[in-house]
């Protein structure tokens, strides 16, 4: 009978949490390695196309992003906007893009030869604007471009 009498006194052993910090630290390191810093705030809304024949981009540091889409701060106007770093241009100001790209190229210094311009363009943008942007890129001798896209599931691994 005495077996049951001291039931109430038995305490739940305390859970050892001393390895918890190590666990969290390893998750932290995982995220630090896998993710990359967000470089700029995107001010135009861009819905990327998706594709299966895409290549993964290397050398993240030499990549300049140009966003073309609907500006977020001006919901009423449907006019497309261009964003390069923190600069925003409207469709009519597209001819100023060249000087900005040249500036960006100078900023890259000795990596300028490897400069790649990733164009993140909304699905609904017309080709006229894109070809104007491409002409500016050509004039600035930023000839390596990439049409950014989301990877579709049925990829052939290329």
């Amino acid at each position: 009978m005495s077996k049951f009498s001291d039931k109430g006194k038995a305490e739940m052993p305390e859970l050892n949490t001393s390895s918890l910090p190590d666990l969290i630290f390893s998750i932290l390191f995982f995220f630090m390695i896998v993710t990359s810093m967000r470089e700029q705030e995107v001010k135009v809304q861009v819905e990327l196309p998706s594709g299966t024949e895409l290549t993964k981009l290397e050398r993240k540091s030499a990549i300049t992003n140009i966003y073309i889409g609907t500006p977020m701060n001006n919901k009423e106007s449907q006019e497309a906007g261009i964003q390069l770093n923190d600069r925003q241009l409207s469709r009519r100001e597209v001819n100023n893009l060249k000087s900005y790209i040249v500036e960006e190229k100078e900023r890259l210094g000795n990596k300028a030869a490897k400069m790649k311009v990733a164009l993140k363009i909304d699905n609904n943008i017309d080709m006229g604007l894109l070809s104007d942007v491409k002409m500016q890129l050509r004039k600035a001798y930023a000839l390596q471009i990439v049409y950014s896209a989301n990877e579709a599931k049925s990829s052939t691994g290329n």
Binding site: V34, T35, K139, Q144, Y147
Partner: peptide, 28 residues
């Protein structure tokens, strides 16, 4: 402390890896 660090990194960084079609433009 490490939780706070973890959350900080989750907020500040992004996972999106860059995929795309590389194209070489001709000279102007």
């Amino acid at each position: 402390i490490s939780f706070i660090l973890l959350i900080f990194f989750l907020v500040v960084t992004s996972m999106n890896s860059n995929f795309g079609l590389p194209v070489m433009l001709p000279n102007p």
